[in-house]
Amino acid sequence: MIAGFTLIHDVTLADRRILEGGNFFDYIWVGAKHMLTGYDHLLFLLGVVFFLTSIKDIVRFITAFTIGHSITLIGATSIQFGVNEFIIDAIIGLSVFYKGFENLDLFKKWLGIAAPNLLYMVFLFGLIHGLGLSARLQGMTQVSELSFLKTIGFNLGVELGQILALIPMVWLINFWRKRSNFGALFKAVNTYLLVAGIVLLVIQLKHFFEH
């Protein structure tokens, strides 16, 4: 299970082949695929949408996350800003833990304080997730081959992948919300986010110190 976490961003050789000399649409495809197979991004999004009941709120929070990761994904890639993949993935793991912690109201229960403004935090974590996406994009292809348009294509793919992932997530949560045992599912999933976030953090830090 632990080793499985290291595969959350599996960049396949097939993806590299697609991107070598790939066009705008190839970048959209790989961006979407990357988002749909990026467990850590999806776990964070799952945590974000768990408490949201209206479409208006979902759009508001997902927009904040999207703006955040688009800024850093496009910005960092454009200026070839490199971050250590392990460190940024460790922080992304921490964001998953944070969302579970916040959803379970542990700020109040354990720390006796109110949770920080969720919209700001989602935007902040969006910035961090974008740095992770940028690091992956820069690692997947030669920076000299990366044009602004291709970066936009990859970002667009990420958004499409995000929408595709959110549709079944929101549907399933709303389906379960009407059932009497939603509370148990809510606790189970958010406790899992706490554990998964910590394991992600530890694994990525282990990789960082090893390499």
């Binding site: 299970m1 499985g4 595969l7």
Partner: peptide, 17 residues
């Protein structure tokens, strides 16, 4: 490759786990 050392079957184990 970044993940070439890992066994891809572990992904399924992770999901099931």
């Amino acid at each position: 490759d970044y993940h070439q050392h890992e066994d891809s079957s572990l992904v399924y184990l992770y999901i099931l786990g």
